[in-house]
Design a protein around this nucleic acid. Structure first.
Lengths: 218, 218
DNA sequence: ATCATTTTTTAGATTCATCTAAATTTATAT
DNA sequence: ATATAAATTTAGATGAATCTAAAAAATGAT
């Protein structure tokens, strides 16, 4: 069985791999996990010899089939718990992450599947990220950063790229949440900042905000 | 902060202390925690130097004020999660323990108090054990083993002494659950086995069963 | 009160996950 | 192409939590 630490490594590799689409480097992992490159090397050697990852000295690491399945199981639990916390325990979307980081390590198939059922088999978590189903399949839908939209275009908010508490609080202040309908009214040539309508209400937003918000184009 | 292992020691000391009402010995702890006496000694020395327990060489251990509060917090979480699992995720009362053993270590005041509220501030868990409230106070009520009842006496089932899955399954088979009204019809002189009525239905039960079932006398 | 038995502690080793410092390999810039 | 910088790995150490084996203390039976 995987230790908690091994689980965290697999999850980190999974996430970094998606962001970059190439093998994940020791340093990246170390930064992501708040640890030192030398510790990462140690762990990668262990994970490699147990066939959870494919790791080559100096060349980075990718998940094996088993490692990917393991990572998906953890992500499934993480996101299901996030839904539970937000929908039933009144957590706000910037408060869930830390607790879900702990809950994702609970080992019980029965718990995971009952929770899934209790929540009515949700497909997306409170940040709009897809929840792997019981067979570990992920739903996919077109998502485009708001910053890539043009004047007059429209979309529904379906997720965030940066899910830091700071950013999520900004969105709360702008009354932007999952499902909000957003239309681009104008884009400032000078700095690419945008004037948008959120469910009809006009707002000004910076490029940084626009480049962290995912919309599903209408 | 306490490690998971330290938390388990404090909880074990708390439980064993209640059963015995005297200082808890190294060997008892080792048995309860499935570990070796020498490991227990090590841990007790650490817990002692951090003031979680009062431990004297060769004399056993009791919890300090802090240690007791810490133990109660863990027990509170354990029992709240048991209620959640049974009432909302359809776990049976013999399935909850193992999962609750994991969930009790999740660190989040907000989670504990929201869960408490979500469950409507339950006072007892699915085995009838009292749940410490937010101030860590335990409800108390008279409970008497069924084996100590006399002919004709009556009571309501409020808990079990042995909460092993095996015993709980026996109770399920006898349709005895928390809240069941039980009357002693007859006691066999020879072996103290009992004929009882459970919510009106007559059943035969062994002394061993009777001495593991708590009733609140009517 | 003494000795055998039981319990407990100490000493020393092991594994996991981490660290720092040094060595090595790869990448980059001229 | 080579030197310098950056990234990575290795070597050796540490602390938590455990173990086994040996030593020490407490208990209990005569």
């Amino acid at each position: 069985m995987l230790s908690r630490s091994e689980e965290n490594y697999l999850k980190a590799i999974f996430h970094l791999r998606i962001e970059k689409n190439s093998a994940v480097s020791t340093t990246e992992l170390a930064e992501h996990l708040n640890t030192k490159p030398s510790s990462v090397t140690d762990m990668l050697q262990r994970l490699n010899s147990n066939k959870w990852v494919d790791y080559r000295k100096y060349r980075g690491v990718i998940l094996s089939r088993n490692g990917e399945q393991a990572a998906l199981k953890i992500i499934r639990k993480h996101r299901l718990w996030e839904v539970f916390l937000v929908e039933h325990l009144n957590f706000s979307w910037d408060e869930v992450h830390e607790v879900a980081e702990q809950l994702e390590h609970i080992q019980s198939e029965q718990l995971t599947s009952s929770l899934d059922q209790f929540l009515n088999f949700p497909k997306y978590d409170p940040h709009g990220d897809p929840i792997p189903d019981a067979t570990l399949q992920l739903s996919r839908r077109t998502k485009k950063l708001l910053s890539n939209f043009k004047r007059k275009e429209c979309g529904v908010c379906i997720g965030v790229k940066d899910s830091s508490a700071d950013f999520l609080k900004v969105l709360d202040r702008l009354s932007i949440s999952l499902g909000s309908e957003i239309q681009i009214i104008d884009i400032e040539e000078f700095d690419q900042s945008m004037r948008i309508a959120v469910d009809g209400q006009q707002k000004y937003i910076s490029t940084k905000i626009a480049s962290n918000l995912y919309l599903n184009p209408i």
